[in-house]
């Protein structure tokens, strides 16, 4: 049975279409990354799963339970880090976890959970004193309570430093090994690239790609990135390079003298020749494996 099954899921606010007929299946046991720029509709999708938002068309289910008609039973499968939450100012961290444990009918020790998310020392302090990162850890801890079948996390590493983000990823891997399906959204590509089996890229409310990282690379014509340092450049030169056979994208870095090109392997030489023909001196060049970032730029058209 699929962990998440969305069929033509749509949400319209007046004239704004937040989600446009999204079809998405997340299999049990996957670590699935939900990627897209801010405002692409990632949170709307997650909020529809939680029944915070009522879809205007289509449906979504979790382990076969419809997220609107059987919302509570659907959420019994979930551990959630929602968007735009706030902690209870007057409760301590430990009290938050006790609330989650009672709510899920679980029997964990709150201290163990606090320890796991790295805020054991702060467990008896009021959550109003917590930093954004500590609150994020606390709510992740609440999500972990009761060994949920599916962890649903909206931008889980917000407010965390790189070390904290790495710790969270480690916890996600552990949970996945236990058998949990992980679904998380992010606009930060490295987060997704580091842990995900598959990703979906969302743009303006539509899914524009669903694939493995490897699959996305292959879709990008071999996924080679060519980084070329030049002595000068002009928009017209970039245009002509984009027009070459086998070239996906070409853009100028912020430093003004490095051009990044994603292209098929056999097109690399053509690119260098094109620079030469345009009278540009190639000072240096190297090739890289295309990162998800490049694919992301490719798919969402952001520069």
């Amino acid at each position: 049975m699929a962990a998440i099954e969305a069929t033509e899921l749509s949400k319209r606010y007046g004239t704004l279409i937040a989600l446009d007929r999204v079809d998405l299946t997340v299999e049990e046991g996957e670590i699935f990354g939900f990627l897209g720029p801010n405002g692409a509709g990632k949170s709307t999708f997650i909020n529809a799963l939680l029944d915070f938002v009522k879809p205007t068309h289509g449906s979504v289910s979790v382990f076969g339970q419809d997220c609107q008609a059987d919302s509570v039973r659907a959420r019994e499968h979930l551990g959630v880090l929602p968007e735009g939450y706030s902690v209870y100012d007057r409760l301590t961290g430990r009290q938050h976890l006790e609330y989650a444990i009672r709510s899920k009918g679980a029997d964990e020790d709150p201290v163990d959970v606090l320890e796991r998310v790295g805020i054991r020392e702060a467990g008896d302090r009021k959550a109003s004193e917590y930093s954004k990162g500590m609150a994020q850890r606390l709510v992740l801890g609440m999500a972990l309570v009761g060994e949920p079948d599916l962890l649903l996390l909206d931008e889980p590493t917000t407010g965390l430093d790189p070390n904290g983000a790495a710790e969270i990823r480690e916890i996600l891997r552990e949970e996945n090994e236990r058998g949990a399906t992980i679904f998380f959204s992010s606009h930060i590509l490295e987060q997704v690239q580091a842990v995900c089996d598959r990703v979906a890229i969302l743009q303006d409310g539509s899914v524009v790609a669903v694939d493995t990282i490897q699959g996305l690379r292959e879709a990008l014509g071999g996924g080679t990135k060519l980084v070329v340092t030049v002595d000068r450049t002009e928009p017209s030169i970039l245009e002509s390079i984009r027009g070459l056979e086998g070239v996906e994208t070409a853009w100028l870095d912020e430093d003004g003298e490095t051009v990044e090109i994603t292209c098929r392997n056999d097109a690399k030489m053509d690119v260098l020749v094109a620079f030469h023909d345009a009278g540009v001196d190639v000072v240096n060049f190297r090739t890289e494996e295309a990162s998800l970032e490049d694919m992301f730029v490719e798919y969402t058209g952001r520069r």
Binding site: L50, V72, L78, Y85, Y88, A100, M142
Partner: peptide, 14 residues
């Protein structure tokens, strides 16, 4: 308004 409701309704409460 504060967002604490999102926390409660993320748990299996109707």
């Amino acid at each position: 308004r504060s967002g604490a409701l999102a926390l409660s309704l993320s748990l299996p409460h109707g």
